[in-house]
Simulated scan of single mutants.
Amino acid sequence: MNEKCEIVRDLLPMYIDDLTSKESNEFINRHLQSCPECTDYYNNLKEDIPEFNHNEKVPSENTEKTLIKKIRRRILLGASALTIFFLTTGIILGIFGDAIFQEGNPLPLVKSIIKLESTDADYVQFSEMPVKYISKSTIDREEMIKRFMEKKNWIYKEQMGNSYFFIKDGEEISVSTRQFTRKYFTWEVPADSTLER
């Protein structure tokens, strides 16, 4: 490899990218025609360097500004949507939080309401300790609770406020009810009353 080869090989990357002058191009072309080693080197180098299509439009500054505006607009839109979501969630929890979380974790209640709505059941249990059930407000709660307790051999005694009192073997217990929403009420049964004796 001589000095001309070294010069041509140094210039080849720019020659491939069409960045060399007209005179340099002529010099490189003459050398490549006479030197098979540099021609092979040129062909290998050309395969390794990705080709740039000079006919493609180079993005103008205006296009870049438009793209940046679109990106900013999308970021602003996303941030606005998140802000609205969190504000709405905050307002809903602020207004209805006590109702949503009045029985603790709302997920068992939601599952029970879905089960209640999808079946003909009068009640669905949603808590083991304490033993709690949920029912539709349209049902006659007194009759339903009486039937439930009679199945457990408890005898109805009286109602006081939102509690129903039952007796069995000299023991007295109360089943308390609570309006959960306009459509549903919950009721709590002492754990030992659910066991038949």
Results as ranks from 00 to 15, higher is better:
3 E>N: 08
4 K>Q: 15
4 K>D: 13
4 K>G: 09
5 C>R: 03
5 C>E: 05
8 V>S: 00
8 V>P: 00
9 R>F: 07
10 D>S: 10
11 L>Y: 05
11 L>K: 11
13 P>C: 05
13 P>W: 09
15 Y>A: 02
16 I>R: 01
16 I>Y: 04
17 D>K: 14
17 D>I: 06
19 L>H: 08
19 L>A: 12
19 L>W: 08
20 T>V: 15
23 E>V: 08
24 S>D: 12
24 S>H: 07
27 F>N: 08
29 N>I: 12
29 N>D: 14
30 R>P: 04
30 R>E: 13
32 L>P: 04
35 C>V: 02
35 C>S: 10
36 P>C: 09
39 T>F: 12
39 T>K: 13
41 Y>C: 05
44 N>I: 14
44 N>L: 13
44 N>A: 14
45 L>W: 10
46 K>W: 11
47 E>W: 11
49 I>V: 12
50 P>R: 15
50 P>G: 12
56 E>T: 09
61 E>C: 05
61 E>V: 14
61 E>Y: 11
62 N>L: 11
62 N>T: 14
63 T>P: 04
63 T>L: 10
63 T>W: 10
64 E>F: 15
64 E>N: 13
65 K>W: 12
65 K>Y: 12
66 T>K: 13
67 L>H: 15
68 I>V: 12
70 K>N: 14
74 R>G: 14
75 I>M: 09
76 L>E: 15
80 S>L: 06
81 A>E: 13
82 L>D: 05
85 F>L: 15
87 L>I: 09
90 G>V: 00
92 I>F: 07
93 L>E: 07
93 L>R: 02
96 F>C: 08
97 G>T: 02
98 D>Q: 06
98 D>M: 02
102 Q>G: 03
104 G>Y: 02
104 G>N: 02
106 P>E: 08
108 P>A: 01
109 L>G: 01
110 V>P: 00
111 K>Q: 14
112 S>H: 03
113 I>G: 00
113 I>C: 02
115 K>P: 00
115 K>M: 07
117 E>Y: 03
118 S>F: 09
119 T>K: 03
120 D>A: 08
123 Y>D: 03
125 Q>V: 08
125 Q>A: 13
126 F>E: 00
126 F>P: 00
128 E>T: 14
130 P>K: 04
131 V>M: 10
133 Y>P: 07
136 K>P: 00
139 I>H: 07
139 I>N: 09
139 I>S: 06
140 D>F: 08
142 E>L: 12
142 E>N: 13
142 E>P: 01
143 E>F: 10
143 E>Y: 11
145 I>H: 02
149 M>L: 05
154 W>M: 07
154 W>D: 04
155 I>P: 03
156 Y>K: 07
157 K>F: 11
159 Q>I: 10
160 M>A: 14
160 M>N: 15
160 M>F: 11
161 G>I: 06
161 G>H: 07
161 G>T: 10
163 S>H: 03
163 S>P: 00
164 Y>K: 06
165 F>K: 12
165 F>P: 05
165 F>V: 12
166 F>L: 05
173 I>S: 06
176 S>N: 09
179 Q>M: 06
181 T>C: 01
183 K>S: 12
183 K>W: 10
184 Y>D: 01
185 F>T: 01
186 T>P: 01
187 W>N: 05
187 W>E: 06
188 E>L: 06
188 E>P: 01
190 P>Y: 09
191 A>P: 09
192 D>M: 10
193 S>H: 04
193 S>E: 02
194 T>G: 06
196 E>I: 15
197 R>A: 08
197 R>P: 09
